[in-house]
C-alpha cells in the first residue's frame, strides 16, 4: 500500500504540473491548447540537448527549457492566437489553430531532434528502500519534490505578484479587467508564455526519468485534458487536484487491476464519463464557466 501511495503521489505531482499550464492558458484565453503535449516534448528535448549533447549541468538544461518554451509561448500567442481571436469569435478557430500548431511542432521536433527516444543520465544515483515495502529511486523523489516546489511557487506567484493578480482578474472577467486598466494583450501573452514554460519545465524534469520521444506529445495532451476535466477547466486548484487524482487512480489501478490485463485506463475513462454526467463542470469548476 505504501508503494501504491508513493507512486500515486509521484505521478500526481508531475501530472499536476502539466495540467497547470494547460488550465492557465484556458482560463486566460478560453483556448484549448492541443499543442501543450508537444510543448512538453520540446522542453524535454531542449534539456536533453543542453545536458547530453552540450555536457552542461542539468539545472542549465532546465532553465534553457523554461526560457525557450516561454519565448515560444509568447510568440505563438502574439503572432498566432491573438490575431485569430481578434478576427474570429468562433471557438473552433482557436482549436483548429492549436491542433495545427501541434502537428507543426511534431514536424519541427522530428527535424531538429530526430525520431529516437532520448534520455539524460540520472541526476541522483541510488534507491530509497524501506524494508521492501516502499522502493523509490532518489531521482524520482528529487523530481517529485521539484515539481511540488514549482507548483507552490506558481500558486504564490499567482496569488501575490502584480502579474499574477492581473492574470487572475483577466481569468475572472476579461472585460471588467480591461475596464480596470489591465493590459489584456500583455497579460494574455505573459499567461501563454507561463503556461508553455510550465510544459517545458515538466518535459525537462521528466527527461531524466522517463526520457523523451517524438510521440509523447499527443498522449500527454490527452492526459492533461483529463486532469482539467476532473478538476474543473480553468481553475488552478482544480488542475492540481485533477493531477493528483489521476496519478493516484493510475497507481491504484495498475497495481490492483494488473491481473485483469490493461483495464486501468478503461476503468478511469468509465469513471470519468459517469463523473462528468453528474458534474460536468468538474470538481472545482463553475457550471457557468
Amino acid at each position: 500500500m505504501e508503494q501504491i501511495l508513493a507512486n500515486g503521489l509521484y505521478l500526481g505531482a508531475q501530472y499536476a504540473l502539466i495540467a497547470l499550464g494547460l488550465t492557465l492558458i484556458f482560463s486566460l484565453m478560453n483556448v484549448l491548447n492541443f499543442a501543450h503535449g508537444q510543448m512538453y516534448v520540446f522542453g524535454g528535448f531542449v534539456t536533453y540537448t543542453v545536458v547530453a549533447q552540450l555536457g552542461l549541468p542539468f539545472i542549465v538544461g532546465l532553465i534553457a527549457s523554461a526560457v525557450v518554451l516561454a519565448v515560444m509561448g509568447a510568440l505563438i500567442e502574439k503572432f498566432l492566437f491573438r490575431p485569430v481571436i481578434r478576427r474570429s469569435k468562433r471557438d473552433e478557430s482557436t482549436m483548429l489553430l492549436a491542433a495545427g500548431i501541434a502537428f507543426f511542432l511534431d514536424a519541427v521536433i522530428l527535424l531538429l531532434f530526430g525520431e529516437k527516444q532520448r534520455g539524460v543520465p540520472k541526476v541522483v544515483d541510488g534507491v530509497f528502500n524501506w524494508d521492501m515495502r516502499l522502493i523509490m529511486p532518489y531521482d524520482r523523489i528529487l523530481i517529485a519534490a521539484l515539481a511540488v516546489a514549482l507548483i507552490v511557487g506558481f500558486i504564490l506567484f499567482m496569488q501575490y505578484s502584480r502579474t499574477g493578480r492581473a492574470m487572475r482578474a483577466l481569468a475572472q472577467d476579461r472585460v471588467a479587467a480591461q475596464l480596470m486598466g489591465v493590459d489584456v494583450d500583455r497579460y494574455s501573452m505573459i499567461g501563454f508564455a507561463l503556461g508553455a514554460m510550465l510544459a517545458g519545465l515538466v518535459g525537462g524534469l521528466l527527461v531524466t526519468i522517463t526520457g523523451i520521444n517524438l510521440g509523447m506529445g499527443g498522449p500527454t495532451s490527452v492526459k492533461a485534458f483529463l486532469m482539467i476535466m476532473i478538476g474543473g477547466a480553468g481553475v488552478i486548484s482544480g488542475a492540481i487536484a485533477g493531477g493528483f487524482i489521476l496519478g493516484m487512480m493510475e497507481s491504484v489501478g495498475l497495481t490492483l487491476l494488473a491481473a485483469y490485463g490493461d483495464v486501468t485506463y478503461l476503468v478511469i475513462f468509465v469513471t470519468l464519463m459517469i463523473f462528468l454526467a453528474i458534474r460536468p463542470q468538474g470538481l472545482m469548476g463553475k457550471p457557468w464557466g
Partner: peptide, 19 residues
C-alpha cells in the same frame, strides 16, 4: 503473463511492481 501497459506510459514502476 497478464501484465500489460499503455504505450504512452511515463512511469513503469507501478506497472512492473506485480511482475
Amino acid at each position: 503473463d497478464t501484465v500489460t501497459y499503455q504505450m504512452d506510459t511515463t512511469d513503469f514502476t507501478p506497472v512492473l511492481l506485480p511482475v
